[in-house]
């Protein structure tokens, strides 16, 4: 084999391996799911078909719409909570912490939980928020509560707390990166021109960090939207989210067609959000060069 054709072969392998991977593990499964979504449920299992009944059911049976709305609501709360916590933290790291060592350490402190099993982290919140949990015991011991309260666990509050904790690294990372990229001389220039710290923040720092905020919000929202563990572990009777419905359609309800249709609906929602955030980001891009 001569030199040229061997290079060609290497190039072909390098190019086609990822493409093959994408086809086998992304494209084919999506097509299978899409195909199933047109099938019909027929006791005891389901039959191949081409009809839109599953989609019609999702939009006309109020139980599915209400779960989708609830999932969106939880995802919004988690995104807002994560943003409110992550932004000041990232700002503090980038602009207030002088020592690079301390900055690195604090940054790692937020990222490190990502290496711990998701399940374990979600489970931990049960022991914190429960009736006999750490929080209740503490509040009772210092006399704020007379007896333990139920309001911390097995409801939407505990789901938002747990999911915020779990997904906050995905908010911190892009915001931190965006803030770090802001040239310090722009902030100094703003100060030199007599703009106060508040004005400098809103006119210089915030607009320049917006891409990070949008990226973080998109991550957090989409990850929360597809979560099904938190509802099972810390959610209560009113905590069912759309991913739980999908698992139950593929599981106990044995209605893969409906589950597939729901998965396609979720996919469309998530892709639209990613597309939207991409557009917003591009529209608001500021050229620093």
């Amino acid at each position: 084999m001569n030199r040229l054709s061997r290079d060609g072969l290497v190039r072909a392998i390098v190019c086609f391996t990822p493409i093959l991977w994408a086809i086998a593990f992304m494209f084919v499964p999506y097509v299978i799911i899409l195909t199933y979504s047109f099938w019909t449920k027929k006791f005891p299992t389901f039959l191949p078909d081409f009809q839109f009944g599953n989609y019609a059911l999702i939009f006309f049976d109020p139980q599915y719409v209400s779960v989708l709305m609830r999932t969106g609501k939880i995802a919004l709360f988690v995104t807002a909570a994560a943003l409110l916590l992550a932004y000041p933290f990232a700002y503090f790291l980038v602009f207030r912490v002088k020592s690079a060592k301390v900055r690195g350490l604090l940054y790692m402190a937020v990222i490190a939980p990502l290496w711990v099993s998701y399940l374990l982290r979600a489970y931990t919140w049960k022991t914190i928020l429960g009736n006999n949990g750490v929080l209740n015991s503490f509040l009772v011991s210092i006399g704020i509560l007379d007896e333990p309260t139920d309001v911390f666990l097995y409801n939407q509050f505990s789901m938002v707390v747990t999911l915020t904790y779990i997904f906050i690294p995905f908010m911190v990372m892009p915001i931190y990166t965006a803030l770090e990229k802001i040239p310090k001389n722009l902030i100094e220039a703003s100060k030199d021109l007599g703009i106060g710290p508040w004005g400098t923040f809103w006119k210089v720092v915030w607009p320049l960090s917006l891409p990070g905020v949008i990226a973080g919000a998109t991550f957090t929202f989409c990850l929360t939207f597809g979560d099904f563990v938190a509802p099972v572990l810390v959610g209560g009777p009113d905590g069912v989210m759309v991913a739980n419905i999908i698992t139950s359609q593929f599981g106990s309800a044995l209605n893969w067609p409906l589950g597939s249709a729901l998965a396609i609906v979720v996919l469309i929602i998530v892709l639209s959000i990613i597309e939207m955030s991409d557009r917003v980001q591009r529209a608001g891009r500021i050229d620093l060069a």
Partner: peptide
């Protein structure tokens, strides 16, 4: 379906 509707209900 009825049981799933119970769990999904607000």
């Amino acid at each position: 379906n009825a049981w799933n509707a119970v769990k999904s209900a607000n």
